[in-house]
């Protein structure tokens, strides 16, 4: 319930036009990875905290808040098939409603899977809390 924090690297973000889908997220991750490689910028080291409230990311060097995404804004999460150390989620931007796909590089495939499973657990707990509240 209190959430779990993972040390990941934020590779980038791209806009998508659907809230979910394997092909869609694979294409989005491909775009993000290509852009990151082209820019040769080092991925930003972040503390990635998952809880039934949502996902909070902090910049690990400055401790600055980067993203605070409510669990109700997140539609989908996945470990990319091709880049299997990459975890990605799709969320709706609270201000303009656009759908964003954010991708994170994990140290190992196992870590990417652990992040995805933890986010999935947060989805389930949030759903149970929502049903109780309804």
């Amino acid at each position: 319930l209190e959430g779990m924090t993972f040390n990941l690297s934020h590779i980038g973000m791209t806009l998508v036009d659907q809230p979910k889908g394997e092909e869609l997220s694979a294409a989005a991750v491909k775009r993000i990875v290509a852009t990151a490689k082209a820019s040769r910028k080092k991925p930003q080291k972040v503390a990635f905290k998952v809880s039934p409230q949502g996902i909070v990311t902090l910049d690990r060097s400055t401790n600055k808040l980067l993203e605070n995404v409510s669990i109700y804004r997140i539609s989908y999460c996945t470990v990319d098939k091709l880049h299997d150390k990459v975890f990605a989620y799709i969320a709706q931007n609270t201000f303009n409603g656009t759908l964003e796909c954010h991708a994170y590089l994990c140290s190992k495939r196992k870590v990417a899977q652990a992040v995805a499973l933890t986010v999935a657990q947060a989805f389930t707990v949030a759903f149970e809390l929502w049903q109780v509240a309804k």
Partner: peptide, 18 residues
Amino acid sequence: NSNTIHFHNPVYQKTTED
């Protein structure tokens, strides 16, 4: 085969009547 790991969020866009 889709051995990718992916999860849909059942509370996506559910409003919180708080």
